[in-house]
Design a protein around this nucleic acid. Structure first.
Lengths: 337, 337
DNA sequence: CTGTTAGCGCCTTCAG
DNA sequence: CTGAAGGCGCTAACAG
């Protein structure tokens, strides 16, 4: 008998407080024209009835619903998840709820989802991509703010947040240099990924600044352990003096480390290895644990939420914002004490 | 000039069709008492204006909002994600939208989220757990149907779906037996996980049915590669004749395979290894690729959505439904041809 | 068959 | 300072 089935309405509160609905509304919304004692009374009644304003009714009037759509293209993917977490986190704190949609990488499906979301009158949209390459902006008339996360929009007028892969690549190279490595090889992933090229460019520029060239051109392949193993063998055969290895991803790095061990090289004493992504299950279970570059994905999600919030509030950010990566030092680059 | 800013309302449609709002409503909702020609006219007008009924207004009347809450306790976790995908998938097909909430394993936070969800008048809730052990049901008065996925509710009156770990464990053992292995060891994970015990029980019962005992008691430890490596060494030292190894998870299996290789054992020729989870990035990158047990998590999510849908429709399922696992055969148990 | 009349729960003028 | 009235977009009785 504490809680009845139907939640209390503003009318209930007003009745209990002995005022009109209008007055109750003003009191609860902090409007000025209400006597303090009255406001107090209304507040107490609301409390007593566990009154929560109905967002549907409120949204019907105001147009604002306090909801946003989170449109992802791959829930399988490892990258969208932390971003979603960050976004959900940032909104969850306030009074905004998040609609989740997975387009499965299908443009038609995406259209569909967007339509559904818009028909629910979301206040804004976050589009999180599967990989950091630019993507086509959402098609159709979108009459709410949109923020692209991870995969920036190709339209520079849109607002996007992504990871700074160039800076990340630089970070990796600088770290190896700082541990005294000079014969450095680079194994990256799929040539089709812009991220592969950006990370490489960053690494090369850092090496260049130190007056060093990699032992040979970077090896492109795929984002897999198998590729890492094979490439590391090739590289080591051509350059037995290799003492540092920059890998385009943690998977590649793990494969490379396995190959190095099997070829009798100690990590990090003979060769230091650094990865990219900070994919925990791979990095921490490696032997030794893998130093790597963390893209701060969760922060990226939070930032996307923040940008969307600002845009909803009327102050949109235009263009692509790149968030810096962070170095995670583990045993693969520094001898364990 | 094709699309104006404000979306069309039922009033607009009615005016264009030259009928009253009520008639337009009936026509669009397929109610019977409308002349066909009129219905036709209304339909066309709606089409022309790209009319989409406002779910807020509709929900205000009917109480049903066409939304459900998906409450997860760990977005990081590998297990919740496929479940969410399945659920999102099942709903996404229809006209239900999903609110995503991550409670971060914090009960207070969960309370909060539930309250927020209920205040938005969701039609139902799916609670997806981080691990397959039973959990406390949601606290407080929940006046909508709830389905627990992966982690079942402790209250048998609630509806839950989870993975059948006993059957999964049995499947693993039966597979090893079917490849002719007879000296079988078992390495599992954290003793605190019910799943570890269930999988073990299943494996033991299958071995027992075949008149076989494992080479020694199962080894409990943690769900990590490091543990898998260490345990495999111990096991092999004590039982050099080991020809089959059942691992409680893919991580454990990968560690074990590394150790086996380093001790000069060939997988699968000398020792066949099977894991559990089908964590693709680990299983497919192993050498050789790892045979394992797949929990059909996505299907589990779909099932949860289906159960919730039924419950919303008035036919709830009570109790815990266990979904069978599926064997994934790869190179670690069968010689590659 | 169609249109009118009431609301759903809330907020906002605008008179008292 | 307070309350009555109107309306957001839609559906469900009732009349016509």
């Amino acid at each position: 008998m504490v809680e009845k089935s139907k939640p209390a309405t503003l009318g209930d509160v007003a009745r209990l407080a002995g005022v009109s609905i209008a007055t109750a509304s003003k009191a609860l919304n902090g409007r000025a024209q209400v006597r303090d004692s009255t406001r107090e009374k209304v507040m107490r009644s609301a409390e007593a009835l566990a009154f929560v304003p109905n967002p549907l009714a409120r949204g019907l009037l105001s147009g604002q619903t306090g909801t946003v759509g989170l449109l992802t293209s791959d829930l399988e993917g490892r990258f969208s998840i932390p971003i979603m977490m960050g976004a959900e986190d940032a909104f969850g704190a306030g009074s905004t709820s998040v609609f989740l949609c997975d387009a499965r990488g299908d443009a038609i499906r995406e259209q569909h989802q967007v339509r559904a979301l818009l028909s629910r009158h979301v206040d804004g949209l976050i589009v999180v991509g599967a990989r950091p390459d630019p993507r086509l902006p959402l098609a159709g008339e979108i009459n709410v703010p949109v923020v692209y996360a991870y995969a920036p929009s190709e339209d520079p007028e849109d607002s996007s947040v992504t990871s700074d892969n160039v800076q990340g690549g630089r970070l990796a190279a600088e770290h190896l240099l700082s541990t005294g490595r000079r014969s450095i090889g680079i194994i990256t992933g799929d040539r089709g990924y812009g991220a592969a090229h950006d990370r490489l460019a960053g690494a090369l520029s850092a090496l260049h600044d130190a007056g060093i060239e990699p032992v040979q051109d970077a090896l492109f392949g795929s984002w897999s352990e198998g590729w890492g193993r094979g490439a590391a063998r090739v590289l080591l055969e051509a350059h037995p003096d290799l003492d540092g290895l920059i890998c385009g991803s943690d998977q590649v790095a793990r494969g490379a480390m396995d190959a190095l061990r099997e070829l009798g090289r100690e990590v990090p004493d003979d060769v230091a290895v650094i990865g990219h992504d900070n994919w925990e299950v791979l990095a921490t279970n490696a032997r030794p644990p893998l130093s790597t570059i963390d893209m701060n994905l969760q922060e990226l999600g939070r930032r996307a939420a923040g940008m969307l919030f600002d845009a909803i509030g009327g102050s949109p950010t235009r263009g692509v914002e790149k968030l810096p990566c962070r170095l995670m030092v583990r045993g693969s680059t520094t001898p364990t004490s």
